[in-house]
């Protein structure tokens, strides 16, 4: 009969005691920050890849196609290893640690974030493209008939409308992203999963520690899904407001 170590379990579950260990404290912060940065990169790469894919210029089109094809067609873990270990070996970029004041961004975190962001961009590309294509072509035509160039019409007219379509799947992508950052463990980027692995190497309590670790991720994704629901209902409300005039204005509307 296995003796469940409640002391260790609660020590690492209870934030006040757990955060005394800098591994966990920094690991959690790293996971959150890397998720946000990689997702933001994913949105930017995805936007350009989507515009490239829709472009009539062959070079832009095929560059975007190749990017999406490669990064969706190979495992993220392989991409990350290639970027961190491979680029270091051929001295294309060694990923030296970056020091900003008291903060150190290790090479592993840089490479991991970059790999996550580029990989995410390939998936975001399809989401952004679907969002843009959901907007009636009449919008682009109206904008052009007013003298707007394609770029200006995209920026001012099409993308703001497409954003409403893009935001719900973007939220799901971010939820995934927070979990996927744990892959950075293989290149020794000190994020949350890495922290628990390190502690486990010291204490050898994998059952207790990885349950606690999963609870941390569960809290992150649950908190995010609550925020996401708020954002989406906010979007819904604004849509409803545009569609239906309020009760008062309906009662007193003079058409």
């Amino acid at each position: 009969m296995y003796h469940f170590d409640w002391v260790i379990f609660f020590h690492y579950l209870w934030p006040v005691s757990a955060f005394q260990d800098p591994l966990i404290r920094n690991g959690l912060i790293t996971t959150i920050v890397v998720s946000i940065v990689a997702q933001a990169m994913g949105v930017i790469f995805g936007l350009f890849a989507a515009l490239g894919k829709m472009s009539k210029a062959p070079v832009a089109h095929w560059l975007a196609e190749a990017y999406i094809w490669y990064f969706r067609g190979t495992p993220l873990l392989v991409q990350m290893s290639l970027l961190f270990f491979g680029f270091g070996v051929i001295h294309l970029y060694d990923f030296p640690d970056i020091h900003i004041g008291l903060i150190t961004i290790t090479g592993a975190i840089q490479a991991g974030t970059l790999a996550l962001g580029i990989n995410e961009g390939a998936y975001m590309a399809e989401i952004v493209r679907a969002g843009i294509e959901s907007i009636d072509v009449g919008q682009m035509e109206a904008a052009k008939s007013l003298g707007m160039t394609y770029g200006l019409a995209m920026r001012r007219i099409v993308l703001p409308q497409a954003a409403k379509v893009i935001i719900p799947p973007l939220g799901n992508e971010f939820n995934n992203m927070m979990k996927t950052t744990s892959l950075m463990e293989v290149i020794s980027a000190s994020e949350l999963f890495f922290a628990f692995n390190e502690i486990n190497a010291r204490l050898f309590k994998p059952f207790e520690l990885f349950i606690v670790c999963s609870i941390y991720y569960l809290v992150l994704t649950t908190v995010w899904s609550i925020i996401q629901a708020r954002i989406e209902s906010g979007l819904g409300e604004r849509k409803a407001m545009e569609k239906n005039p309020g009760m008062l204005s309906r009662l007193f509307a003079a058409r």
Binding site: D136, G138, E141, A142, K144, S145, M148, Q161, E242
Partner: peptide, 18 residues
């Protein structure tokens, strides 16, 4: 785009920016 700016167009389906 510059040439189109001098030509107004009104569409069947309005195409106002929602």
């Amino acid at each position: 785009a510059r040439q189109r700016a001098e030509i107004g167009m009104v569409f069947q389906r309005f195409n106002l920016f929602p």
